[in-house]
Design a protein around this nucleic acid. Structure first.
Lengths: 223, 223
DNA sequence: CTGGTTAATGACTTTTGGGTCATTAACTAT
DNA sequence: ATAGTTAATGACCCAAAAGTCATTAACCAG
């Protein structure tokens, strides 16, 4: 009597139930990722997550005891090397460094097009301070690896005399700055003022190429 | 009798009241900006905004009828040309374009250091989709002006033969990509893995310089 | 077919926080 | 002083959403 007023006549009449213990967690995580990405942690509703996953709200809580748990699980499911194949390619490649760098940048722009990645980026920026552990996990698994990859390419280019040592070599990260900007642009002003990724990438590659090859300037440069 | 149980003996005992009709809105906006920047729109608590502004919760609502109103007022208070002086400087300057560009970039890094701007950036990225009008306002007032400024500098450099036309000239935005990346880095991995802004700026300037001056390559370039 | 196990359900409980308003008191004009 | 005006207050109200759990029914073993 403490709960429920419905008795035998109150029929659920919803969609048929299905018992799918194995598949649920993954589906809930996908739904959660979508909701968190679209609304942010606080604004996302567990009931919407459930609806998106095609189940009842209570079911979500059977698999993830709290909203925070789901959030962490969802974001942790996405930590992982984005550059695995690239990494291998770099290790086995023997030619000049520039094509490798171009390949990395091209790869980056391909990833940026994926809405799932946009969502992830937005979440990390928005909720980072509230979930530092998640930030650290992504830093460890994705960011620092990407950075190491870049550093390896640049180091190789310098060793072969293809690239000039200097401030860029000290922080090869800057080389992907424009791609980061493209990603941010997409998730902010992309709707108001879209910029074709090809345009961005072409300008980016131009910038990198001439920057890294360096100008054969003597002690004086301007004319 | 419908409200309040406190009678004459229940003394507030808080800090002394002060009537400051003129100063309140601005102070509340500052407090709101800080809270929204740190937590995001949903997670920010009106009571915390009040505490930060040194007033009672009810007072906030005397000036801003809803949380949304405060949010909009706070973000709108920050729309405005970030590049006003720079704009004037460009208009009156007559020398080569490169120093102007360097000045713009240097200026950008100075701004990035300001935590208020970091907060603003985070808010725009996180809450943009929920408040498209605010996004549009910033695009109009700040972004598109900055872009126009950049374009003017690059156009001038090309006219004088200082810069090469090409993909970069078609999208001068890429030239500030690394600064955007630095700002994003700061608000995400800045605590875990800090990068000195000088390092970023030095690499950025190197990248720009050699990219824009172009390499005097003949039909073949590699050696 | 049948009884046992447990995944799934959603009405319900609880907590949280936006928003209200009767009361208080700061300031002002006389 | 003192009465009038209204800025400021915070206890309270209530809707919304996280989280609970008694009940239901899918699936399976025998």
């Amino acid at each position: 009597m403490t709960q429920k007023s419905l008795t035998s006549d109150t029929v659920a009449a919803g969609r048929p139930r299905r018992r799918r213990k194995e598949a649920r967690p993954g589906e809930i995580i996908e739904a959660g990722l979508a909701e968190f990405g679209a609304r942010g942690f606080e604004a996302a509703r567990m009931e919407d997550v459930a609806r998106r996953a095609g189940i009842a709200k209570g079911t979500v809580f059977r698999y993830f005891p709290t909203k925070e748990t789901l959030f962490e699980a969802a974001l942790t499911s996405r930590v992982g090397p984005m550059f695995e194949q690239l990494d291998a390619a770099i290790a086995s490649a023997s030619g000049p460094a520039m094509p490798l760098l171009e390949r990395l940048v091209t790869n980056l722009y391909a990833q940026i097009g994926d809405p799932a990645l946009s969502g992830l980026i937005r979440i990390l920026i928005a909720e980072g301070p509230r979930f530092p552990a998640i930030l650290a996990a992504h830093h460890r698994a994705t960011i620092s690896r990407g950075r190491a990859l870049l550093e390896r390419i640049v180091a190789r280019g310098i060793a072969s005399g293809e690239f000039q040592p200097g401030a860029i070599a000290a922080l090869p990260m800057v080389l992907v700055g424009p791609a980061i900007m493209a990603a941010i642009w997409r998730i902010t002003f992309g709707l108001i003022d879209p910029i074709p990724p090809e345009l961005f990438m072409a300008a980016h590659l131009d910038l990198i190429r001439h920057g890294l090859q360096g100008v054969a300037t003597g002690p004086h440069s301007a004319g």
